[in-house]
Design a binder for these strands. Sequence first.
DNA 1: TCCTGTACCTACTCACGAGTAAGACTACTG
DNA 2: CAGTAGTCTTACTCGTGAGTAGGTACAGGA
Lengths: 217, 217
Amino acid sequence: MQPDQRRAKRLPRAVRERQIMDAAVDVFSRLGFHAASMDEISEVAGISKPMLYAYLGSKEELFATCIRREATRMMEAISGGIEPDQTPDVQLWSGLRAFFGFVGENRASWQVLHRQASTQGGPFAIELTDMRGRAVALVAALLAQSTKAAPSTQLEAESLAAALVGAGESLADWWLDHPDEPAGVVAARLMNLVWMGFGDLVDGNIWHPPSRRPGAQ
Amino acid sequence: MQPDQRRAKRLPRAVRERQIMDAAVDVFSRLGFHAASMDEISEVAGISKPMLYAYLGSKEELFATCIRREATRMMEAISGGIEPDQTPDVQLWSGLRAFFGFVGENRASWQVLHRQASTQGGPFAIELTDMRGRAVALVAALLAQSTKAAPSTQLEAESLAAALVGAGESLADWWLDHPDEPAGVVAARLMNLVWMGFGDLVDGNIWHPPSRRPGAQ
DNA sequence: TCCTGTACCTACTCACGAGTAAGACTACTG
DNA sequence: CAGTAGTCTTACTCGTGAGTAGGTACAGGA
């Protein structure tokens, strides 16, 4: 109880809100929505519970706000990583790298986004579905570029995009349990799987970026 | 309160246990582990709470038992669907069909297995990891058959198997939100994606089973 | 120096849910 | 019909966690 035990007193609202959001993402990602308590979030954030309610509203509002913030951060990271005037395979490659790069550096964000939000019903799933919809649209547009030739592509591209996004999601989940692998390796693995297919891979044909540096990552 | 409001009175223990398990899978799949209450499970099962505790133990024990039962059912469905003396691609195809067939007919089981169990820590994740490990081993063995030719296959096959299993898991999740698609179509889509790859698909090369009936499903 | 607003707290209320105590009802066995 | 084993219930205890009441402390302006 020394007077010097400064808890960074009397900060402006915007700063506190960021601290609270960071704490909330941390706690939600570790415990899940239901098991997380507002008491613990306020403790991690270094403030008291009434502040939390005054600034961010109820537990549900806080969770929804977390999802929106992290979803926005991630989609910006991905679309920022794509170079639009490259060939489709290179665009896909850079998108995958951006995605796994983001997940690698923001594991808590990914936890709260994918594993938590998708298991809670109600408004949360809506936010999530919205983000996934944007990701699928991004990939579908990219695939549609590749398939100008083929005939019945519009719907087919979209469902394949959904499968690819799903594969990315679950490979990211798998990666959470195998954190030793570098991001580039995981991304390259998925790239090869979806671009070449096992049928080619067993013949030794692998995909690689158009030679800047031979090694991955 | 008519005396005729028979709640199927005084059944033997084994029958009650099955009813309770079914109710538990239903409630857990709808609400998740934490939000599900033992009161609701007992109500759905048509018995009172103390019976539930007497027969299946605590909430955590009940949940773990659910996971074990559903995981076993699913793995049996899959390995029962594979014909071991076929070529690797056909084996993979029949495995995928068995998997999506099971999920389609047991949506609640899949919910509780994948979406719920994977987000809860502790003993549940262990059960789940165990099941996934068996699935990955199954697929990895299958892939290893295909790649006798290639050199550095042992570890590579295993990680590709993990990616494939992950892709299947998340495609099944996606399917939960698009229940109108038939199981065979979803399975065929994943089969094409992982066996042919986009690189072939954009050229119009699709994989199909070695002609019994031309149409899928 | 008083005044007002914003940051911030302690200490509650209240509902809900896990788990239990204690016994009642039924069926079978002798 | 008494006894016993197993089925089943009502009616609790008790902890935990969401949300709030009612304040204190500090900062800046008059």
